[in-house]
Design a protein around this nucleic acid. Structure first.
Lengths: 195, 195
DNA sequence: ATGTTACCGTAACAGATGTTACGAAAGGTG
DNA sequence: CACCTTTCGTAACATCTGTTACGGTAACAT
C-alpha cells in the first residue's frame, strides 16, 4: 500500500467551500479555481475528488440537503406536541440567524443554477416536495379535523411563506429581520388556527 | 447628417433577449454572445448600445420593473374596492400564467446575480420595499381598523407568500399550478379577514 | 531504512468570455 | 447623384474557464 487520504473529509471541506462561494458570489463566481482557493487546495485535488464541476455541485447540494433533513427528522421524532413541532420546523427553514441566511443564499444560487441544469432542477423539486409533505403531515397532526384539501392548501401556503421569507431576507435582511420573520410566521399560524 | 437608428427600440429588443436568456439559462448562460444571438444581432451592436455587460443587465432589469410597476399603478388607481385591488395586485405578482412564470425565472436569475453585484442588490431591495409599501397601503385601506403593526406584519406576510409562490413555481410548476396558487392566496386572504 | 504505491500540485490545453479597434456600408443631405 | 456622418458587423485581444496529463512527493508495508 501507500499513502491514504480521508476522501470523505476532503469532499466535505470542498463542499463547504462551494457553499461559501455560492453564498458570496452566486453561480457566476463559482469557478473551480475559486472553490480550490477557498478550500485551501488546488484545482488538481478538487478534480481528483470529483469527476467534473457538475458532480461537485451536486455533491455539495446533496450534503447540505441531508444535513438540514436530519435536523428536521430529529425535531419531528421528538416528544413535543405537533403544533410546536410545526412551528419549530418552519423556524428552522427560515433565515433567523446569519448561518441560516447564508444557507438561504446558497439555495438561491442553486435554484438559479437549476434554471439551466435539468438534474439540479429535478433535485430541487423532489426536495421541495418532501418538505411540503413534512409540513402537511405536521399540519394534519395538529388539526386532525381538517379535510385533506384544507391541510394541503395551508401546508402549501406555509411552505411558500418560509420560502418567500428566505428569498426576501437574502435581498433585504434589514427589512426581513429575525423578529419580522417570527412575527410574520406566528401571525400566520395564529390566523390559520395552528398555534 | 447621416443614417439614424432607433436606439430606444434596439435597447428594448436587446433587453427582451436578456430576459429570455435569463429565464432559460440563468445568469450562467447570460453571455454577450448569447444575448446578441437571441436579439438577432452581434455583440458589436450590443456593446454600441450599452457601455458594458453590467449596464445592459441593469437596463433590462429596470425596464422589466417599470413595466410591472405601471400595470400595478393602473390597477391601484381603478375604482374597485381596496380588497379586490389587493387581491388583483397579489395575483399580478404571482406566477399564474406561463408569461408570469417566465418573469419569475428572470427575477430569480437577477436575484442570484445580485449575490455578487452590489448595485443589483440595492435595486432589488428598493423594488421589494416599494412593493411591500404598496401592499401595506392596500391592506390598510381594506382594514382601516387595524393597527399599523398589524398592517405591516400582514403585508409582509402577503409579500413573502407571493414571493415564495413564485420561487416555488419556478422550481416545480406542476405542484404550484395556477389553481394551487390562487387557492393558497384566497385561503390566506380569508384567514386574515381580507376578502 | 527503503521501495513502492497512492496522492496531489503544476502546468498546459482548447474553448469561451468581456472588451476593443477597425473598416465597410447604409442612408439622410445637399 | 455624390458626399459624409453614423451605424454596426468582423475580427482580434487578453483573460478566464473546465479539463487533462504529467511528475514530484509523501506515507505505508516490509
Amino acid at each position: 500500500m501507500a499513502r491514504t487520504a480521508d476522501r470523505v473529509a476532503q469532499a466535505e471541506r470542498i463542499s463547504q467551500a462551494v457553499w461559501r462561494i455560492m453564498a458570496s458570489s452566486g453561480p457566476q463566481g463559482l469557478t473551480l479555481r475559486a472553490v480550490a482557493a477557498e478550500a485551501g487546495c488546488t484545482t488538481g485535488l478538487v478534480l481528483h475528488r470529483f469527476p467534473d464541476k457538475r458532480a461537485l455541485l451536486v455533491h455539495a447540494r446533496d450534503l447540505l440537503h441531508e444535513r438540514t433533513g436530519r435536523t428536521m427528522d430529529r425535531l419531528e421524532a421528538g416528544a413535543e406536541p405537533p403544533g410546536r413541532v410545526l412551528r419549530s420546523v418552519l423556524v428552522l427553514a427560515a433565515s433567523l440567524d446569519p448561518d441560516k441566511r447564508q444557507e438561504a443564499r446558497v439555495w438561491l444560487g442553486y435554484l438559479a443554477a437549476a434554471l439551466a441544469d435539468e438534474e439540479l432542477a429535478a433535485r430541487h423539486t423532489t426536495a421541495n416536495r418532501s418538505f411540503l409533505a413534512r409540513v402537511a403531515r405536521l399540519v394534519a397532526r395538529t388539526r386532525p379535523d381538517w379535510s385533506a384539501d384544507a391541510v394541503s392548501t395551508v401546508a402549501t401556503a406555509l411552505v411558500a411563506l418560509v420560502e418567500g421569507v428566505n428569498t426576501l431576507a437574502v435581498a433585504d435582511p434589514e427589512t426581513y429581520s429575525a423578529e419580522v420573520q417570527e412575527a410574520v410566521l406566528d401571525r400566520t399560524l395564529a390566523s390559520y388556527g395552528l398555534s
